[in-house]
Design a protein around this nucleic acid. Structure first.
Lengths: 235, 235
DNA sequence: GGCTGCTCTATGTCTATACTTAATGAAACT
DNA sequence: AGTTTCATTAAGTATAGACATAGAGCAGCC
C-alpha cells in the first residue's frame, strides 16, 4: 500500500502553503509578508526556490512584488483565468463525438471594411474567404467565417480546404507571433441559424480572433458556437 | 540620446529568438530542437537560463518537452489565452466612466436546485441572495445575480451591500482557493431586459462563476453584460 | 513475436553565490 | 516647506554545480 503522495516540488509546496496562509487570513490583504530571505530560512530552502514560488503567486495575481518595497498580499486581486483554445476537431473528438466538417464557400474576394480594419490591410484587398461548418456526430457544433491573407501565409492559394480543416492547416504551418481575441454574444442571423440548424435570433457565443506573424495578419476568423455552448475557463 | 533598448533579460531574449525560429520555420512543427546544453553553449548562458526560457515557451504551448525525449516544436499548438476578470468598478472607471451600483434585492432565501449543484450544497439551504445592477455613467453595464454562503464567508450576514459592492467585499475578505468559470450566450429574459434597459431576447454574454475556499463554496454568481459587450482576451 | 528489465540521456529541480536594479526613506541642501 | 542626493534594501536575474527522474530504446529472455 504505497502512499499516493501528490509529489510536489519544494517550490510548489511553498506556493500552496503561502496560498493557504492568505486564504486562511493569517496574512491579510494589504499585509507585507516576510521577505524572500526570511521565508527561505523558515522553509529550509534556497532563496531562489522561494523566489520561484512567490513569482508564481504574483503571476496568479495574489501577491504584489516590488523591489525594495517587499511583497504584499494584493488588495483587489483581479484574478486571471486561462482558456485553452483547442483545435475544433480535437475538442469534438475529446467529447467522444465523430468529427466532420463541410466547406460552404471558398473563394478569393475583396475584403469588407471591418475585416480590413481588423487585419490592418487596405480595404478591397483580395483574400481567401472561407465559410465552414464543423459537426460532432452530424450535429452542427460551430460555424466558421474566415479570411486568410496569402501575403502572410504563402501557399494557401493552392490548398483545398474541403480535405484539410483550415484551422489545423494554418496552425500547423503558420504559427503566429501575436493574436487579438474577443468574446461576445450575438443573435443568430439568417445564415448562422440555417447552418447551425437553430432558430434565428437565438443567442450565440461568438469568438473573433485575428492572428499575426512578422509578415502581417495571417487570418481573421469569427466562430459562432451552437446555442447553449459553454466555454470553460480554468483559473 | 539614449537608446530605448527594450531591456530584455537573457531568458526573455532566448524566448524571442526561439519563437522567431519557430515562426520563421527554421524549426518546423514536430522537429526536435537542440537540447538545453547545446543551446546554453550557443547563446553563451547557463543551462538554467535556457531551461527557464524553454519552460516559458512550453507553457505558452509552442514547445513539447519530455525527459530523455528532448524538446519538440508542438505539432498542433492549442495556444492559451489569458483573461483578467477585473473588479467591475475598476473596469468601469478604467473606461473613464463614473461607477455606481444599485442593489435590487438582498435577502436570505432557500437555494434552487441548480445553485445547490453548482455550490455542492444541500438543496433548500438558506443563502444570501443578491441582485445588483452596475452602471457606468448611469448606463447599465452588468447585471449580477449572486448567492453567498455564510458558512464559507462568516460575517456576510451583517454586511449591507447597498453601501459596499459584494464582489469587492468578498474579494477583499475571502480570497478563494479554486473557481469554476464558464462563458455562454443567453437571450435576455424579462428581468435581464428590464434591468439592462435592453430588448427582451437580445443576446447577452454571460459569465457564470463559483468560488471555493477550504470551507466550501463561497459564492456563485451569474453576470450578464450589456448587449454588445466584448470581452478581450490576451494571448 | 512479445514481454521484462536495464541503461543512459535530457529535462526537472534545487543550492549557494553573486551581481544588478528599482525605489524608499532619510539626510542634506536649497 | 520643498527639492535633490544618496545609502540601503528587497526583489530580479544569472551562474556553476549537483542530483533526481521519466522514459526511449536496447538486450536478453521466454
Amino acid at each position: 500500500m504505497t502512499e499516493k503522495t501528490a509529489q510536489l516540488s519544494k517550490a510548489q509546496a511553498i506556493t500552496s502553503e503561502v496560498r493557504r496562509r492568505i486564504v486562511d487570513r493569517e496574512w491579510r490583504q494589504g499585509d507585507r509578508i516576510p521577505d524572500e530571505a526570511e521565508l527561505a530560512v523558515e522553509f529550509g530552502v534556497a532563496r531562489a526556490t522561494v523566489n520561484k514560488a512567490l513569482q508564481m503567486l504574483a503571476e496568479e495575481g495574489l501577491l504584489d512584488r516590488k523591489r525594495r518595497a517587499g511583497t504584499h498580499v494584493t488588495v483587489n486581486p483581479a484574478r486571471k483565468a486561462t482558456l485553452t483554445i483547442p483545435i475544433v476537431r480535437e475538442q469534438i473528438e475529446g467529447a467522444g463525438l465523430e468529427y466532420s466538417h463541410r466547406v460552404v464557400a471558398q473563394k478569393l474576394s475583396p475584403i469588407p471594411a471591418d475585416v480590413a480594419l481588423r487585419m490592418s490591410l487596405p480595404e478591397g484587398a483580395e483574400l481567401i474567404h472561407l465559410r465552414t461548418v464543423h459537426y460532432g456526430d452530424s450535429q452542427p457544433f460551430q460555424v466558421e467565417d474566415r479570411w486568410i491573407n496569402p501575403g502572410a501565409a504563402p501557399g494557401v492559394e493552392r490548398i483545398d480546404f474541403h480535405r484539410i480543416n483550415a484551422n489545423e492547416w494554418l496552425v500547423r504551418n503558420f504559427p503566429w507571433l501575436h493574436a487579438d481575441m474577443a468574446f461576445s454574444a450575438e443573435n443568430a442571423n439568417a445564415r448562422d441559424a440555417r447552418l447551425l440548424e437553430a432558430r434565428q435570433g437565438t443567442a450565440l457565443l461568438i469568438l473573433q480572433r485575428t492572428t499575426f506573424n512578422d509578415l502581417g495578419a495571417i487570418t481573421t476568423v469569427r466562430l459562432a458556437f451552437h446555442p447553449g455552448y459553454q466555454l470553460i475557463a480554468t483559473p
